[in-house]
């Protein structure tokens, strides 16, 4: 826009709404009480027209304490205040929700509720999973314990672990050599019938497949040469074991007929410490599971 346009606008100042309708809020179309425009107009008619830039500079400097300046200052103060408040409240970190509208807040709240719901569901699922795992691991531990106890019992029977407990010690001394394998087998069967749980003869552990054979110079148990005297360490109830050996016509009397002596001593602690290696069967497999 040229400066000629400014002159034209100055001429048309009586009807400023024609040039810029609705956009000059501070304008005074046909103002009667605004003294300044009249002065300006008189001034312009006399002298070269005053441009907008000159008016701006004249308004800024020198500072004048006029009513218009004060009024505008008060309003601009209010504007600056509102601007600063709004900017600072918007730039607050926690103020993201301060300026939010009611429906936005409702939406945000609903979203948060949904999120909480989802997280609660997830938490519940994880908790039930955890309790499940705890229960199952408890069951597994219990099963392991029972299995270990079972393995111990079977180990005692199979002779792969040492055993201790109350029982008796039977010592057979046979200086004449009259005690043969069948006598020892009879003794063993008598002890088993009386409830012996773990038996050791000298340093050989007696198990289910123990066998007695006659060797060239004595008895072999499971192929091992066993020297005299034969010492049976037997774990079981002493009150059952001792009478079982001592009954009339029983093991002790039979051995005495063979010119051998048999001593039975009760004890509260018999240790059966001879072991057998555990054998893995070649063909038989556990049918459970």
């Amino acid at each position: 826009m040229s400066s000629g346009r400014d002159d034209g606008m100055s001429d048309e100042r009586e009807e400023p709404e024609n040039t810029a309708p609705g956009s000059t809020d501070g304008a005074t179309p046909g103002s009667t009480d605004g003294t300044t425009p009249h002065e300006h107009r008189a001034h312009e008619h006399a002298a070269p027209p005053v441009t907008g830039r000159q008016r701006l500079v004249a308004g800024l400097w020198p500072p004048r304490l006029s009513r218009a300046q004060l009024t505008v200052a008060v309003l601009l103060f209010v504007l600056g205040l509102g601007l600063a408040i709004q900017v600072s409240s918007t730039s607050d970190s926690g103020g993201a929700l301060r300026g939010a509208r009611k429906e936005d807040l409702v939406r945000i709240l609903t979203e948060l509720d949904n999120r909480t719901q989802r997280l609660e569901d997830e938490k519940r699922g994880l908790e039930s999973q955890r309790s499940e795992l705890e229960t199952s691991s408890n069951q597994a531990a219990e099963a392991l314990k029972q299995t270990q106890a079972k393995a111990q019992q079977l180990g005692v029977l199979a002779g792969t672990v040492a055993a201790q407990g109350p029982g008796i010690t039977l010592t057979i001394t046979d200086p004449k050599g009259g005690v043969e394998a069948d006598s020892l087998l009879d003794t063993l069967q008598e002890l088993r019938a009386a409830g012996a749980e773990a038996i050791q003869i000298n340093d050989v552990r007696v198990v289910a497949d123990t066998y007695f054979t006659e060797g060239a110079d004595g008895v072999l148990i499971d192929g091992h040469k066993v020297a005299q005297p034969y010492e049976f360490k037997v774990i079981g109830n002493p009150q059952d074991l001792e009478p079982a050996l001592n009954i009339p016509g029983g093991v002790v009397q039979t051995l005495e007929k063979e010119q051998a002596t048999a001593d039975v001593v009760r004890s509260q602690k018999i240790v059966v410490s001879a072991l057998r290696p555990s054998k893995q069967p070649d063909y038989a497999r556990s049918s459970s599971q």
């Binding site: 809020d25 179309p29 300044t36 830039r53 218009a68 601009l76």
Partner: peptide
């Protein structure tokens, strides 16, 4: 308020500013 201030500034540059109208 910003709109009013810009309008007032324009009116001042046009030489037709009036404080009463601005208020």
């Amino acid at each position: 308020a910003l709109d009013a201030v810009f309008g007032g500034l324009r009116a001042m540059l046009d030489g037709i500013f009036d404080d009463k109208v601005f208020v």
